[in-house]
Design a protein around this nucleic acid. Sequence first.
DNA 1: ATGAACCTTACTTTTTCCTTAAATTTTTTC
DNA 2: GAAAAAATTTAAGGAAAAAGTAAGGTTCAT
Lengths: 234, 234
Amino acid sequence: MNNIYDCKLLLVDDNLQLLHMIEEILRKEGYQHIVTAKSCQEAYEVFDREELQLGILDVMLPDGDGFSLFRRLRERWETPLLFLSAKDEDNDRLFGLGLGADDYITKPFLPQELLFRIAAILKRTYFFGNGRAREEILVLGERTINFENAMVTWEEKSTTLTAKELLLLRKLNSNRGNIVTFDALCQTAWGDFYYGYENTLMVHIRRLREKIEEDPSHPKWLQTVRGLGYRLNK
Amino acid sequence: MNNIYDCKLLLVDDNLQLLHMIEEILRKEGYQHIVTAKSCQEAYEVFDREELQLGILDVMLPDGDGFSLFRRLRERWETPLLFLSAKDEDNDRLFGLGLGADDYITKPFLPQELLFRIAAILKRTYFFGNGRAREEILVLGERTINFENAMVTWEEKSTTLTAKELLLLRKLNSNRGNIVTFDALCQTAWGDFYYGYENTLMVHIRRLREKIEEDPSHPKWLQTVRGLGYRLNK
DNA sequence: ATGAACCTTACTTTTTCCTTAAATTTTTTC
DNA sequence: GAAAAAATTTAAGGAAAAAGTAAGGTTCAT
């Protein structure tokens, strides 16, 4: 599975018209695998048979309510489940969420909101790491800079950036492709009173180049723009 | 982390009254680690400093809106984020969810619903099996550290880690490969008022090295990254 | 050819971290 | 409940890395 649209969704509702409407909404959005069921029993069998990534349960069903279906399903699977209900009463919503539903959407709903909420759950369940920091990695040709651990790696070798070097490179990277003025760089490194650090900046840039460039004296990535500042090329 | 109440939550809101109300609700429910921030800037700094499991962002903030804060945070972290807003207009809700928020709750809200929705997200993110292998054993070359009983074993020999050593190693391990700042380490070891423990930290690190490294003075695993912090290498 | 902008290197200072030992607190044992 | 052991904290001198300084060199535009 490469993206949320590869997920297989189950739609449980006995209102055929609504069923088709939602199916259409999902299909238009790009979901490729949509299964439907019209009763609790059918829904349970589908779960048993197929490997689903998310279930959307109507609360009103011919052979029982969505809540009891929810409980039966959760006994065996941890698949995300969300409720769809015509009743917007607080008690029902609380009951549904209290059971452990991933969301509770009331009819009438905005199609877009349904899509966003489904996407949020799918991303959270199947595509995000566990809320940890994103890996911040910068690739400059042969070399790789990891902002998380300040390491520069190339051909098995590696060095680490110092605090100031990391700071400056971060700043440059956050404006990659654009010029960052001397003043801006000095400011990020030494705060508001940076007068007199111009030369120090140059030294740091030199050291950075020695770590990230193949030929520090003829930089390919961290280039100087005369009279203006430095630029980290794309 | 054994249950959702171990999760550390961040609450961002400039309305002090509301802030305290929500904090109270969360505390009463059993959440033990609640951090608050009153501005975007503050929120960002907290994220940088602490390891949070969920963020609740008010849409209206003194130094920017919750939406732009959301974007800044998501650039670096995948932590679940949900919006809290006074406006229940469809457009705002869609905008917030469209950004990728995990939920969007409008004021006034039912305290219980807020709790359920937070619980749903936390469970989904941290406690349901998304192939999240709970690592309780750490292997560093020849040595093996068992977090369950704090024992370090190698070549028939073994020692035990002290409480503080275990705590620090846990923290380092949960960010293995990345730098953990002094502040972050001190915070996990001594809580919010850790001023003055910097040197103590170093001593503990030394002791840890003596137990987990072959040559404590030339550490292979627990390395220091000058000016930034320590890193447990992969 | 000249001056301004920037580079480069070697050197000095500062900061950060290490390390050891002793003191204090906490926990365990008898 | 006192003594012993273990763990934690404090303190201080020392080492090493990073940051900063300075001075001569290079490049570029006019």
